[in-house]
């Protein structure tokens, strides 16, 4: 993988690193109607520039917690503040603007299969009203950063699992977001690729990005120790069982 340094804007709000709370959950909970995936009484604050692993067994509610953090779900109890704004009070346009500041890497990547990789990566720019044609250099550098320059014209179904995850990461950061949320990004890739993805996320964190990464892979968390200063959140039975554990 011909990774080079992260090409987009340099660290911003560095002074605020470790100070400002970008995502704040207060006694937050969510219920789907049954007990599966339900969360209750979650208190969690993500300071700007922090790196958190979210771990726990399958069905513990990791994905639900992440969805609360990027506003796909709104809490049925308590409060979730995104950049200081109560997610339940955000208008739909307001939520869209908040999402432009949060890059999300889904486990299944969620690409539009009729668009090429380059078009998929440029999609966040397009929907934000920016002209991708004027940002071809940034796009090119970003694809080079994740080692996918040679796959620009490929369609998502033709990409391997590792390529898809790296592309999803590139799409998540194309808007130079403040927060990156990744849901099991290494779930479908081999160990080597997991390490590479972790390296990229660590690089982003060193640039001041807040990272929240959900994984059930404890080996990955251990492997991150030399790369990032991270805290581990363990989620079980719908609650954060251990918060703030230093790696």
């Amino acid at each position: 993988m011909d990774c080079t340094g992260f090409p987009l804007r340099a660290e911003r709000g560095g002074a605020a690193k470790g100070m400002a709370i970008v995502i704040d959950l207060r006694a937050a909970g969510y219920s789907y109607g049954g007990s599966a995936g339900a969360l209750s009484g979650i208190d969690l604050s993500l300071p700007a520039g922090s790196f958190h692993f979210l771990t726990g067994p399958s069905g513990a509610g990791k994905t639900t917690l992440l969805k609360l953090c990027y506003g796909e779900l709104k809490p049925s109890e308590g409060q979730v503040a995104l950049f200081g704004k109560d997610s339940r009070m955000l208008s739909r346009d307001g939520l869209a603007l908040v999402r432009q500041r949060i890059g999300v890497v889904h486990q299944d990547c969620r690409f539009l299969d009729h668009l090429t990789l380059a078009e998929n990566l440029a999609l966040p720019l397009l929907v934000a009203g920016r002209d991708p044609a004027r940002e071809t250099e940034s796009l090119s550098q970003l694809m080079s950063w994740v080692g996918l320059s040679h796959r620009a014209t490929a369609y998502p179904p033709a990409l391997s699992g590792g390529e898809r995850q790296r592309a999803a990461l590139a799409r998540a950061v194309i808007m130079d977001p403040d927060v990156i949320i990744a849901d099991e990004p290494t779930g479908n890739v081999d160990w080597e690729m997991s390490q590479r993805l972790l390296t990229l996320l660590g690089e982003l964190n060193r640039l001041g990005k807040t990272v929240l990464l959900a994984t059930h892979d404890l080996a990955l968390i251990r492997a991150a120790k030399p790369l990032v200063q991270a805290r581990v959140l363990r989620l079980a039975d719908g609650r954060v069982q251990a918060a703030g554990t230093e790696l």
Partner: peptide, 16 residues
């Protein structure tokens, strides 16, 4: 529906 979902998740406004 999945296209709409993806567009919303990456920050598209309803109008777009």
């Amino acid at each position: 529906a999945e296209v709409i979902r993806v567009l919303r998740l990456i920050g598209a406004r309803d109008f777009y």
